[in-house]
């Protein structure tokens, strides 16, 4: 019954998003939607750790960048096919998440923020230093992903758009599966009451590590897709603007909800594009908006959508499952 509802929701999203290329002729719009989808995927996977797992960390940008740089370096220096590179990006992010997660998840709260923050800076220093491998400040110029004879790049916006859309759907299913699995249930019970969860035999460290690692995979895949789509990789992948975009997507959309970060990424990306006329005042408006949303709409805009339409009631949905278990 519930999975049927999810299926309907997915179908609705796919339907809406897949007719867009037929309606708009401007590559600009397709590009912005693609960015929204990519950012949405990274944000919603991060949300798995932040919102569901209660682990506030800053490693999502390093995961994203690790994905981008691993495929870039391997394809430039060893001729790896970018199509495989996408997967390699995901694997690289997973490896990094293990390196960070195994020691780091033993510490909690603000310490986890600091730890992941330090990793971010060390990785950036390495990228900037080893110019021969990473291209340093100049970055690397890449080949596009090829499927058969078709290039997935700027020149084929529609094909690229559908590739991003498939990733988007994949991510949705991936996250939904995790949330509904034993891991997801354990996470929610850990978040709500750790003492109770531990008494029921849940190992918090193990569950958190698994979630942390799972949430890194698609961030790495997206990083790899992103750099091959734009055909360049630069240290800008470590920019704070990415961290702020991902984080803001989660906050604007709704922490700990399935659709929140995706909605947030779409709203944020389109809002920032349509506010371009503000020129230098754009970031100030953005900052104010973030603060206002945090204060007046702490559960994010998804709550408005929830109220308006019960179709998007994913939060109640997952909560409902927990109740049944109990």
């Amino acid at each position: 019954m519930k999975s049927n509802k999810f299926l309907l929701e997915i179908l609705a999203i796919v339907l809406v998003l897949s007719v867009i290329p037929a309606l708009v002729r401007q590559q600009y719009i397709l590009h912005v939607i693609m960015l929204a989808m990519i950012f949405g995927i990274v944000a919603s996977n991060w949300n798995l750790a932040i919102g569901y797992g209660g682990m506030f960390h800053l490693a999502q940008v390093p995961f994203f960048a690790a994905g981008g740089y691993s495929t870039a370096i391997l394809s430039v220096h060893m001729g790896l096919s970018p199509l495989i590179g996408i997967l390699v990006g995901g694997v690289a992010a997973v490896i990094l998440s293990l390196i960070i997660g195994i020691p780091a998840l033993r510490v909690r709260g603000i310490y986890l923020v600091f730890l992941t923050f330090a990793f971010h800076f060390i990785m950036l220093s390495l990228v900037l230093y080893f110019v021969d491998i990473t291209g340093g400040d100049m970055g690397l110029i890449l080949e596009p992903i090829r499927i058969g004879a078709t290039n997935i790049d700027m020149f084929n916006p529609v094909v690229t758009y559908y590739t991003a859309l498939s990733l988007f759907v994949l991510s949705l299913v991936f996250i939904k599966t995790i949330i509904d699995s034993k891991i997801g249930l354990a996470l929610v019970s850990l978040r709500d009451s750790e003492v109770y969860a531990v008494s029921r035999g849940i190992n918090p460290y193990k569950i958190k590590l698994v979630t942390f690692v799972l949430s890194s995979f698609l961030a790495g895949v997206c990083g790899a897709f992103y750099v091959h789509y734009l055909r360049v990789v630069t240290p800008a992948l470590f920019d704070w603007s990415f961290l702020i975009t991902f984080l803001a997507s989660i906050v604007i959309g709704g922490v700990g909800t399935l659709y929140g970060p995706l909605l947030g990424a779409f709203i944020l990306t389109f809002l920032m594009e349509s506010l371009r006329f503000l020129e230098m005042f754009r970031n100030i408006v953005f900052g104010l908006l973030m603060i206002l949303i945090l204060i007046f709409m702490p559960k994010g805009l998804i709550m408005l959508a929830n109220r308006a339409q019960s179709i998007f009631s994913s939060r109640q949905n997952s909560a409902g499952i927990v109740d049944e278990e109990n």
């Binding site: 932040i50 506030f56 702020i244 100030i284 953005f286 900052g287 104010l288 973030m290 945090l294």
Partner: peptide
């Protein structure tokens, strides 16, 4: 978490 994000937004402003 929220204060971290809100103060980050303040620093952007």
């Amino acid at each position: 978490t929220n204060i971290f994000i809100a103060t980050l937004a303040t620093s952007i402003i």
